[in-house]
Design a binder for these strands. Structure first.
Length: 869
DNA sequence: AGACGACAAATTTTT
DNA sequence: TTTGTCGTCT
């Protein structure tokens, strides 16, 4: 992602495109287009088109006019997008800087840049307008900040800052901040911004619903405060440009001239604001008359879309790629309707369906297609594949007694695959809700199976990172009051609530930033000596650091700041178990700054790119939510927890009704279509939810799978799954409110088993079930199974399975198998454990250590989880 | 300022 | 059941 300061476009208005003509000679040699041209062989179809199927090729070559590419899962969507861009460049239709290409995630943007680079033969430095909606929004807003009442060095607040700010405002209004939680209001505001609504545009009902009817005032106050702070939130990155475009037709016109081609990835995920943004940019200057340029407010009761009338002529060349069946972000404002309505928004649009799937077996596709067919209002696609190997495995459905057994059986299957030389990297466990992950993590730690959790707490969200960033922000932008407040008393400087309030009030009264107010207060007599001295030091420190900003390399400056402020010192003195990790993280932060030119550039990067790269070299099973799995693929996929209430999730049903259910079904579809070869679905008959054991009913989605492509795992199969009798048998099980399920008789727990199941496998299953029951109720009956935290020896089964070595790397816990070599530790050694802190080794048995921890008491731990203190 | 107990809340998540 | 937040007490 290109950082701030902005890269200056190397083209200007006069090198306007000559559609279908040769590209003009480039100012500097060896541009992308030139190279692509060179790579093109004679009169044959260019190389980059080779290997595309007819539909893909059509999608690439239909460059003019509006195009909607309905790209089913695994049909080569990214390939089409990137090839299309390469094609536009290679045929001289536009310069790189004349193509606007938007994605949702940084990852997708990165991937596209990379792949275009590969196609075209060089790094894509010349595509300044390829990025996420937000990063492009920032770029626009930096250029025209003054039109939104901001300066171009505005800061971007993240969710945490926003919540703190809102909380202040709620308190300032004299409202009870418990009755009206700031977090909730932040989400409400976000929802409004997703719809592109400013304070004056929100529906009256919405405005009244919060804060004793003060919703609108509060929203207004929030926006005013942002302006004062010279800051904006994520939503503003879209909303401000929309308002600027509407209020300043000349500015909009500039971009109309600029962007000859617009490409949008994952169009089904666009929200209303993004839609409006795109529509504004997609209006050609000639078509101005059709849509009033000054149009702003959306009339009440009228859908925002309806306010923007379709433009029928002089359409820009917009190409949206997406899949309505994979729309899973409705809950955060995405409007599936945007994609469903595309050909009405853009009359005469070419709609191209990509239905040839290159990813999955026929069984997997068959199952997924049959399931998704239960949704209404689809644009409709029928995926097909030519991979039809009779040896392909059917989709397997497994039953387990509870989540522990589910995790155990999945673990066994993974080990079985591993022994058949499958890579762990090719396997994934996709869960509906993150609490489900824990059971798998616990199990894999005891098995010594490498795994990787994707999508956990992110690097930049950690406390120490955010604190350090706050210091940098104040140095880079002295007016950043939120950052100032965050760290003014971190480390503790004796500046309590009262002192901070005083600084705050002074700042308000003098209409200056808090840092400045602090400096003034330190010079006056209005404060008690102690806080006054502390403030003086803080102010002097920041003044000094700010003075260094242009003369000192930014990584060096960062180190100076953390050192002189006493921040690193604070963690060095901290005796808690995770303090060393935090210091390590701070070092990592400094290291990562090296890649950026300046402190500013770095801050911008962090604001927009909240992810940190994962360790890809390690062979590990991936564990993640279904949501974060979108766009990925794995040879083998495990989908646990297919039970009513969990999947579909009860809350989605309660709050979303039928459309909620349909979104859950799309989520199921996304899950199924992640698998290339093997797909295992699981449901349990009992699950602990919020500490209570609940007996559960198999998901209705299981009943929506086609029998022809699905096989119920028999007892005694290698996965340790439990027998369930013949597929399609309907035994009247427990009352199932959704009608009899063919899984009822398996999932309903002990006591309701039919004697139909007299097979040996079934009996074995029953025996296992009894064991599982013993284990589960063990804690009640005194039958103990010790399991505390990770890394601790499970003193029950599995202890003899070999040793485990693990460590934590930036949010990914990595458990590593190791041979049964003797432990490197001996009795009396001083060691450190991530969770329990420091302690002395009391006993060593192979690789299992008994340690007397200073704080946590005596624990048994595997040696891989401790380091020499 | 820090420790402790009471209390509510516990999908999905990018930027 | 667990987690985090808030208020109160020392």
């Amino acid at each position: 992602m290109s950082g701030f300061p902005d890269d200056i476009p190397f083209f200007d208005e006069d090198d306007a495109p000559r559609p279908n003509s040769q590209p003009a000679p480039r100012p500097a040699g060896g541009g992308i287009a030139a190279r692509a041209m060179a790579a093109r062989g004679g009169n044959r179809a260019p190389d980059y088109l080779a290997g595309l199927n007819p539909e893909q090729r059509l999608a690439v070559e239909t460059t003019e006019g509006p195009v909607l590419v309905l790209a089913g899962a695994g049909t080569g969507k990214t390939r089409v997008l990137t090839t299309r861009i390469a094609h536009i460049l290679a045929t001289g239709r536009a310069y790189p800087s004349q193509i606007l290409a938007v994605t949702f995630t940084n990852k997708a943007a990165r991937e596209m840049k990379h792949r275009i680079g590969v196609l075209v033969g060089e790094a894509v430095e010349g595509m300044p307008w390829l990025g996420t909606f937000h990063s492009i929004g920032v770029k626009l807003l930096r250029r025209h900040a003054e039109l939104a009442g901001l300066r171009s060095d505005f800061t971007i607040l993240d969710t945490d800052d926003v919540i703190r700010l809102i909380k202040q405002l709620i308190q300032a209004e004299g409202l009870d901040d418990k009755r009206w939680p700031a977090r909730q209001f932040a989400q409400i505001i976000d929802g409004w911004k997703n719809k592109g609504l400013g304070p004056s545009e929100i529906p009256e009902g919405d405005a009244r619903a919060f804060a004793n009817g003060k919703g609108r005032e509060l929203y207004k106050a929030y926006q005013d405060r942002l302006t004062t702070l010279n800051a904006c939130d994520f939503g503003d990155l879209l909303c401000h440009p929309i308002r600027i475009f509407r209020a300043h037709p000349d500015v909009l016109k500039e971009y109309h001239r600029k962007f000859k081609y617009i490409l949008v990835d994952e169009y089904q995920d666009t929200n209303t604001a993004q839609y409006m943004w795109l529509r504004l940019l997609a209006q050609r200057p000639e078509a101005r008359g059709h849509v009033p340029a000054g149009q702003t407010a959306v009339a009440e009761g009228q859908s925002p879309q309806a306010a923007v009338r379709p433009v029928s002529e002089n359409q820009v060349n917009i190409c949206c790629v997406g899949d309505d069946d994979q729309s899973i972000y409705g809950w955060r404002g995405a409007e599936v309707d945007n994609i469903l309505r595309f050909d009405k928004d853009f009359p005469g649009a070419t709609v191209i369906r990509l239905e040839r799937n290159y990813r999955s077996t026929a069984h997997i596709l068959g199952a997924a297609s049959h399931l998704i067919a239960h949704n209404e209002g689809r644009l409709g696609k029928t995926l097909f594949t030519e991979k039809a190997d009779p040896d392909d495995a059917k989709v397997m459905v497994h039953a387990a007694w509870d989540s522990e057994e589910e995790a155990r059986a999945v673990g066994e299957e993974i080990e079985a695959l591993q022994s058949r030389r499958h890579n762990l990297n090719d396997m994934a466990i996709l869960v509906r809700a993150s609490f489900q992950m824990r059971e798998f993590e616990d199990r894999f730690v005891t098995l010594g199976l490498n795994y990787r959790v994707i999508g956990g707490p992110r690097f930049y969200e950690r406390q120490e990172i955010r604190d350090a960033m706050a210091y940098f922000r104040v140095v880079a932008q002295g007016a950043d009051d939120l950052a100032f407040e965050r760290i003014v008393n971190v480390p503790k400087r004796g500046l309590g609530e009262a002192a901070i309030r005083q600084v705050h009030d002074t700042a308000r009264a003098m209409r200056v930033p808090m840092l400045e107010a602090a400096g003034k207060l330190a010079e006056s007599d209005e404060m008690k000596p102690k806080p006054r001295a502390a403030l003086r030091e803080v102010a002097a420190n920041f003044a000094r650091w700010q003075g260094l900003i242009d003369t000192t390399p930014h990584t060096e400056l960062a180190e100076i700041i953390l050192e002189e402020s006493g921040y690193t010192e604070m963690w060095k003195n901290d005796k808690s178990a995770d303090a060393p990790t935090r210091l390590e993280n701070l070092k990592e932060l400094i290291r990562s700054m090296e890649e950026y030119e300046s402190l500013r550039g770095f801050l911008e990067h962090v604001a927009l790119v909240m992810d940190a790269e994962q360790n890809e070299n390690l062979d590990a099973v991936s564990i993640m939510t279904l949501h974060s799995a979108k766009g990925l693929e794995f040879d083998t996929v495990f989908l646990p927890g297919w039970e009513e209430g969990l999947f579909p999730h009860q809350r989605a049903l309660d709050e979303g009704g039928r459309s909620g259910l349909e979104e859950e079904r799309r989520l199921a579809y996304v899950g199924l279509t992640r698998a290339k070869k093997n797909l295992h679905l699981w449901f349990t008959s009992n699950r602990r939810i919020h500490g209570l054991w609940q007996s559960t009913i198999p998901s209705r989605f299981l009943d929506e799978l086609p029998e022809a492509h699905v096989e119920v795992a028999e007892a005694g199969s290698s996965y340790g799954g439990y027998g369930m009798g013949g597929f399609g048998e309907r035994q009247a099980g427990r009352q199932n409110p959704y009608g009899a399920s063919r899984f009822d008789n398996v999932g309903s727990g002990a006591g309701s088993f039919s004697n139909t199941y007299a097979t040996p496998g079934w009996q074995r299953a029953q025996q296992n079930r009894t064991e599982a029951t013993d284990r589960n109720w063990g804690s009640r009956s005194g039958h103990s199974v010790e399991r505390i935290g990770y890394g601790e020896v499970d003193s029950g089964y599995g202890a003899g399975r070999g040793s485990v070595k693990g460590r934590t790397i930036e949010g990914e816990l990595v458990a590593k198998s190791v041979s049964d070599s003797p432990s490197p530790f001996k009795v009396g050694d001083r060691v450190f454990h991530q969770k329990f802190g420091n302690g002395n080794i009391a006993a060593v048995e192979g690789n299992k250590l008994t340690i007397d921890f200073d704080k946590a008491g005596q624990k048994r731990v595997l040696d891989g989880f401790v380091t020499t203190a």
